[in-house]
Amino acid sequence: MSSERTERFFDLSALLTGFDRAQLLGTGVADQYRRTLEQVVCDEVLDDLLRAYERLPAGERREAAVRSEILDHADRGPVARNLIMLWYSGTWRPLPDDWRKAHGTSPLDTDRVVSGEAYVAGLQWVAAGAHPMAARPGGFGSWALPPERIDA
């Protein structure tokens, strides 16, 4: 991925996940996710998705455009949703059949955890105000305290 493409990848990821770039970098697995995308999704679709991101309008119309130009788009939507799933849970889910018919099937397009690090780095644990199950525990008795305020 060119550095420019990498920039767009982070910008798009931040928009889709609701986490900022520093938080995404802090997971330590951004490169794994980028490679996962590149392994399963052809350059053509990936570049088209990133260009669609660049063309999004600013201001009030932006949110509606994210839906119409990315999430509801037949080629881009499934990839964008899988990218969100990657960031939140560290898992890849198979793309829909229609998408595969149009763009081909990769042997890596299966239900899988990208890596042990990706499991631990899932943003779902941050969103929940919790910790990954079996990692980064809160310490003895932490569970008795009220949950921290969950910011978004």
Binding site: T17, G18, E63, I84
Partner: peptide
């Protein structure tokens, strides 16, 4: 997606 997704999951 985005902040709305994060708020939904948080809650």
């Amino acid at each position: 997606f985005g902040k709305q997704l994060r708020r939904h999951l948080g809650s």
